[in-house]
Design a binder for these strands. Structure first.
Lengths: 152, 152
DNA sequence: TATTGTTATACTCTATAACTATA
DNA sequence: TATAGTTATAGAGTATAACAATA
């Protein structure tokens, strides 16, 4: 039958060659996570990038675009239209920096706090779905390892 | 000075909010890995997707496009132009399947074996670079956890 | 009717180059 | 001269819809 291909694939999840490379696995799992996350955020018409910006501003209250770019991993030039969208929806405000007139002091508008709570719930659900195959201990292990791999 | 932003970012790697979500971390690290990988493959004018196809065919000798799609995570419709490119460069051949005339039996050409060796070296270098912040034990841990998260 | 491969298309993400205004 | 923000643009990745050939 023509189910063969699909079955083999489901059981082995591809040949050994691809499973041997941690880098390839990270890229694949990352895409998977991204897809699940994007799907969840879609209910609120938000991008993964937009979400990252909102989360950071939720803690810092105000940041330059340069900082936001570094913290989210988004390139500064690609951050521009992202902030434009957020600003048009009234979720974010580009103020002026008193110490350097080149900089914009980006901050959340008061309206966003309710949204952030809902987003946390959506995010949590997506993560639970993704990490379902792992035990609690394994989830903890994984979470401990990943931050070390993030660097500029 | 205006180095402050960059320094803070490098030290904390972004605020706690983003570090709290395993899903977000996986997406970020996955992008990082992807970027490093793509950069390495670029020296041979290859895409990450093309690389995945080559690796699988290197083990299976022959596979249907449907199978390749499943094993690489590439959508079947997007696989078409990828195979076109590989075929035009003489790296891959679309043969006919004797048991099902709808299927193409995709296989490597003999010329590719030398290329695959060089690719393994490039891949290894990229992974070493990415995983540099981890100890050998941690690398092993991470590699063990990731395959569990891959599923159709 | 379901499946394999295909096309056309569109939308997002990422990256290259160059500009402006400020420092 | 260097930096913060911006624009235009092009490439790759991904997704929606529909089709022809074959099972």
């Amino acid at each position: 039958m023509n189910h063969d291909d699909a079955n083999i694939c489901r059981l082995m999840k591809g040949p050994q060659a691809l499973l041997a490379s941690t880098g390839y696995l990270l890229a694949r799992v990352g895409s998977e996570s991204r897809r699940l996350f994007v799907q969840a955020l879609d209910e609120r018409d938000l991008t993964l990038a937009q979400y990252g910006v909102l989360m950071i501003l939720g803690e810092l209250k105000s940041a330059s675009q340069r900082y936001l770019a570094g913290a989210t991993g988004i390139d500064p030039r690609n951050l521009v239209p992202i902030l434009d969208a957020l600003e048009n929806r009234g979720l974010v405000r580009r103020g002026s920096d008193s110490t350097d007139r080149r900089r914009h002091a980006v901050a959340l508008t008061p309206a966003v706090t309710a949204l952030l709570v809902k987003l946390s719930r959506l995010r949590a659900q997506a993560v639970v779905e993704l990490l379902k195959p792992l035990s609690a201990t394994q989830r903890h292990q994984l979470h401990g390892l990943l931050p070390r791999l993030l660097r500029t």
